[in-house]
Design a protein around this nucleic acid. Sequence first.
RNA 1: GCCCGGGUGGCGCAAUGGUAGCGCAACCGACUUGUAAUCGGUAGGGUAGCGGUUCGAAUCCGCUCUCGGGCUCCA
Length: 583
Amino acid sequence: MTAKNTNDAKKVERLEVVRHSAAHIMAEAVSSLFPQVELGIGPATSEGFYYDFDLPRSLTPEDLSVIETKMREIIASDSPFLHEETNKDTAREIFSSQPYKLELIDELDDETATVYRQGSFVDLCRGPHVASTGEVKAFKLLSIAGAYWRGNELRPMLQRIYGTAFETKDELESSLKRLEEAAKRDHRKLGKALDLFSIHEEAGAGLVYWHPKGATIRSIIEDFWRSEHSKRGYDIVYIPHIAKIDLWKSSGHWEFYQDSMYPPIDIEGQSYLVKPMNCPGHILIYKTQLRSYRQLPLRWAELGTVYRWERSGVLHGLTRVRGFTQDDAHIFCHPDQLEDEVVGVVEFACFMLQSFGFNDYEVMLSTRPEKYAGTIEVWDQATETLQRSLERLQIDYVIDPGEGVFYGPKIDISLEDSLGRTWQGPTIQVDFNLPERFDVNYIGDDGLEHRVVMIHRTVLGSMERFLGCLIEHYGGAFPIWLAPVQAAVIPITDANLDYAREVALQLRSEGIRVEVDERSERMNLKIRDAQLQKVPYMLIIGNEEMNNSTVSVRLRNGQNIRGVSVPEFKSMVKSAVDAKETV
RNA sequence: GCCCGGGUGGCGCAAUGGUAGCGCAACCGACUUGUAAUCGGUAGGGUAGCGGUUCGAAUCCGCUCUCGGGCUCCA
C-alpha cells in the first residue's frame, strides 16, 4: 500500500499561488473586454484554475484566445499585486456593482475584508498572490463551461473559464502533452478503435453493448473475480432483475432512492421495479432459513446488473451509465465479526486492484448524510468500526463528512491510473438498517434471535466503470492475460497460409487466443494493423519458419525474436499470463 | 436536469443558402512480398429525427433524440 504524500508541499503551495494569480489576471482581462461583467469566484484547483463570470453573452472558443492575448498584455505590464485590508462597509462600496461579491462579503466571518489590486482591477480575495503579474510565466486557457453560482442548481448559471498555469513553460508543455496523451487513451475512442463496446442512440443512452473483444476481457476478469471470491469463502448467488414495489418499500429504497429508480412497471395489476441494487434479493435468500451464529459470516457475491436513472447530462462512456453490473457481495455477520470482515474486504479490494496494476489509491471514509435511516448511535458505532479497520491496516484515509449512503457509512477507494488520474472504484458499506427493516436475524449461542450486521461491498466497483478505467490505464495495450487477441499470426505469402493455420490451431488448443491474418496483403500492413490493435504478440511466418517449424515473434514494443519453436512460444505466453505481464 | 458546443457513408473528416466530397475500411482485380500503410478499379450517404422559413436547406428557425466540455449527482 503506497501512501500518497505531497512530496514537495512548498512547490505545491507556490504553484497554487501562481494559479490563483493567473485567475485574477484572467478576471482582469475579461473585465476589460466585458466591462459589464459580474464576477463570481476564481480559485486555483489541483489541475489549474478557473473563474466564474456572469456575462451579457455566451463565450465562444474564439474568445479564449482574445482573453489570452489580453492576459499577456497584463503580464507584460508587470503590475504589482497590492494587498489591502479594509472593513466590510468599504468593501461593499468597492464592489457595489458586483452582486456576487456583495454576497460573499456578507458572509465573511469577521469585519475585515481583504482585497487585492493589480492595475485597475480589484478583487475580493484572501490571497496570497505573487508579487506582480509578470511572475505568471506559463499559462493556457483550456475550456468554457457552465457552472451554477456556488454549485447550487437553483442559483444562476455562470460561465466558467478553465485554465492552467505552471511556474515554467516546460512544465506547462509537459502538462499539455499529458492532456493530449489522456485524450488518446480515452476509453470511448479506444472502445471504438479496438472494437470493444458500443452505446446506441436508438437503443438508449447509458446502456452498453459489449462486442466480442470487450466481452472477452470482461469475462476473463469475471472468471478471475469468481475464483478469487471462492478462495476467500464467498459463495455465488443470482437474483432476478425486477421485484414487486413492496420489496423496495420494505428496503427503504423507494423512500430514499426513488430519484434514481425507474418508474414502476405494471404487471397484471401489480407494480414491479427494476432493481437499482442487489441487496434485498440477497436478504430474501438469507431469510429462507433460520440461521445459526455458527453459519456466520455468510459471504454472498453476485455480478449483479442494476439499473439507475442517471440524469442525461451526467452520462459518460463506460464510467457513468444507466445499466451496470456491480461486482457486488453482501456479508451477513454478527457485530463481533464486523471489524475482521471489513479488514478482509479492504485487503481483498487492494489485492484486486494490484492485480490490475493499480498500486496507488486513495481511501475515503464517508460519514452520515443529511437523509439517513436508523439511529445516530448505530451510525456512530458503524463509523467507528470502519475507522478501526483502516487503522488496523495502517491505511491513510480522508474523512468525507456527510457523504455516506442513506443506510450506512462507507469506505470508498479511488484508484490512480497510469496517468495519475483518479477513478472511483471499490466501495465498502456497513448497513445496520436493512437487517432492521427486513428483520434479518441469526440464532446466537444463547438460543435467542439477534440482528445480523450487513456489509455491502464491491472490490472493483462496476464492470463497466472498471473496464473503462482499465482501458485508459493500459491505453488499450492490455496485459497478456487480458488481451482479447494474444497473438496475431501473420503469414508472409499465401504459400505460408497452411502452416500459419496449423500454428494457430496448436496454440488455440492450449487456450491461447490467436487470429490468423489471412488477407492477401503485405506483411507490413498486417503488422501495422496488429500494432494498432495493440496485439501483444505477432507471429511472422515465412518460408524460413515453415521449413524449421518455428515462428518469428514480434512484440508490440517492436522487439523481435526469430526462430522460436511453437512449444517455446506456448510457454512464453503461459508464463506471461501467469505473471500478468504487460510486455 | 441546467449552461455552452456538436451530430454528414462502417470509421475519421470536408462542403455555411445553389441540387454532398475526401481518406481509411468494404467489395473486385493484379501483385506473393521478411518486421508499422502495394497498385488499380467498383459500390456506398442525401446530411440524427420531425416540423417550419425559402424558388432552393447539410447550412437559417423550432421541437425531440443523442454526443462532447462542465455544474449538480454517482458504482
